[in-house]
Every structure is written in structure tokens, then in C-alpha cells.
Computed example of a mutant assay.
Amino acid sequence: MDNQDLKIRTKKFSLDIIHLYKLSPKSTEFQTIGRQLLRSATSVGANTRAAYRGRSRKEFVAKIGIVIEEADESGFWIELLEEISINNKEKLLKLRN
């Protein structure tokens, strides 16, 4: 996988989460978890781009470490949404994978 592929995939992930949030129920729990998910998921894409702009291998590795942490956090929020959601389970499973 080249750097363009990873940048495209992480941007698509961010966009998919944005669209999911827009369609989410307006209940307090969905909105609270959804905002947390928005922050972590969009950070995945942004930090991936930043990693490839790194000035050294060490800087790249540090930024990719942040990407991994944010992706893991996004997975946590998606799991919570899966467990409280009546709808969107299939879409959430696809995003988590």
C-alpha cells in the first residue's frame, strides 16, 4: 500500500463517520458518543496526512502512532454505538472493520 492509498482510505473513513453522525438519532447518548467519534475519526485522516509530511522517519513513526491510537479510540466509540443502536448495525460493523 502506498501513501496515497492510506491517505485516501483514512479520508474516506473520516467522511463516512461524518455522514453517519449526520444521520444519527438526536438523543443525548448518540450525540455525545457521536461527537467523540467525530473527533477521533477525523483525527485519523488528519494525522495520516501529517505523518507523510514528516521531516524524518522518527517524526513519521510518532504521527503514525497517533493514527493508531485514534483509530483504536474510534473503534471503541463504534462498538458502543453498535451496542446501543437498533438501526445502523450493519453500517457500524462495516466502519469498525
Rank of each mutant, 00 (worst) to 15 (best):
M1P: 06
M1V: 05
N3V: 14
Q4D: 12
D5G: 11
D5T: 11
D5Q: 07
L6A: 12
L6I: 12
K7Q: 05
K7G: 05
I8D: 05
I8S: 15
R9F: 02
R9Y: 00
R9Q: 08
T10F: 05
T10V: 02
T10N: 03
T10W: 04
K11M: 14
F13K: 03
F13V: 04
S14N: 07
S14K: 00
D16Y: 05
D16R: 09
I17A: 01
I17T: 01
I18F: 12
H19Q: 08
H19E: 00
H19N: 03
H19V: 09
H19P: 02
H19G: 04
L20E: 02
L20Q: 00
Y21W: 13
L23G: 06
P25F: 03
P25Y: 01
K26Y: 02
K26A: 08
K26W: 01
K26R: 01
K26H: 01
S27D: 09
T28K: 13
T28V: 15
F30K: 00
Q31F: 10
Q31Y: 09
Q31C: 14
T32P: 03
T32M: 15
I33T: 00
G34I: 06
G34E: 12
R35S: 05
R35K: 13
R35P: 05
Q36V: 02
Q36G: 01
L37I: 02
L37V: 07
R39W: 08
R39P: 13
R39V: 08
S40R: 02
A41T: 15
T42Y: 10
T42P: 01
T42N: 06
S43N: 10
S43G: 12
V44R: 03
V44F: 11
V44C: 10
G45K: 05
G45S: 04
G45Y: 02
A46V: 07
N47V: 08
N47Q: 10
T48E: 08
A50K: 10
A51V: 08
Y52D: 12
Y52A: 01
R53D: 01
S56R: 06
S56T: 03
S56P: 01
K58D: 14
K58L: 14
K58E: 15
E59V: 01
F60R: 02
A62P: 10
K63D: 09
K63G: 15
I64Y: 11
I64Q: 09
I64C: 14
I66W: 04
I66T: 12
V67M: 06
V67Y: 00
I68S: 13
E69A: 04
E70C: 09
A71V: 06
A71T: 10
A71F: 06
E73N: 07
S74V: 00
G75M: 11
G75S: 09
F76C: 12
F76G: 14
F76Q: 08
W77I: 13
W77D: 11
I78F: 11
E79P: 11
E79A: 09
E79T: 15
L80H: 04
L81D: 00
L81N: 03
E82A: 03
E82W: 05
E82R: 06
I84R: 02
S85D: 12
S85C: 08
S85E: 12
I86D: 13
I86L: 13
N87S: 15
N87L: 07
N87H: 15
N87M: 07
N88F: 07
N88L: 14
K89F: 13
E90K: 15
E90W: 03
K91Q: 15
K91I: 13
L92E: 02
L92C: 09
L92H: 04
K94A: 13
K94Y: 13
L95T: 09
L95F: 06
N97C: 14
